[in-house]
Amino acid sequence: MTVAGFTSARRFATAVEGEIGYLALYGLKTDDPQAALAVLEARSGTAGIPFSFGLDMNGISAVLYEAIGPEQLAADQKASQG
């Protein structure tokens, strides 16, 4: 990931047999998330951030979310992070 402000990216595929769907989650750390998203969108489909030829461009959407509370860990995860 070479877009300023983006700290991580992770892709997911549906885990339900017979369903087709994908999700990409991006981590951001920036004072201007709209500008970072605009740069990502501008570079998408280029050599720097290529798209798959099978990607349905009509089904793509991008939404910015902001955390409203801390991450909640399961009890066994809390213990392992000690």
Rank of each mutant, 00 (worst) to 15 (best):
S52Q: 12
F53Q: 12
E66K: 05
A67K: 12
A74T: 10
L23N: 00
L25P: 10
G21I: 06
T2M: 12
P33I: 01
P50I: 09
T30A: 00
V16Y: 12
P70L: 00
A13D: 15
A36P: 07
V39W: 02
Q81N: 10
I60M: 14
E71R: 06
P50D: 05
A74R: 05
A38E: 07
D31N: 05
L23H: 04
G59M: 05
M57C: 11
A4D: 15
M57R: 15
G59N: 09
A35N: 09
G69M: 04
G27H: 04
S80L: 02
A75R: 01
A24V: 15
R11F: 13
L73D: 11
D76Y: 05
K29E: 13
S8A: 15
S80D: 03
M1P: 15
K78R: 07
A47D: 12
F51D: 14
A24R: 03
L28Q: 00
A67W: 09
E71I: 06
F12Q: 02
T7H: 01
A15F: 03
T30L: 00
D56E: 07
T30I: 01
I20E: 14
S80T: 03
L64K: 11
G5Q: 02
P33A: 02
I60F: 12
L40M: 14
G21D: 08
A74G: 06
A74K: 08
G69D: 05
G45E: 08
I68H: 04
G18K: 06
S80A: 08
A75M: 02
V63T: 15
E17P: 13
V16Q: 14
G45D: 11
A36V: 13
S80Y: 04
A36H: 06
A35C: 07
I60H: 05
R43Y: 12
I68W: 07
L23G: 01
S61A: 04
G45T: 08
D31S: 04
T14W: 07
I60P: 05
Y22I: 01
L28M: 03
F53A: 13
Q72H: 02
L25I: 14
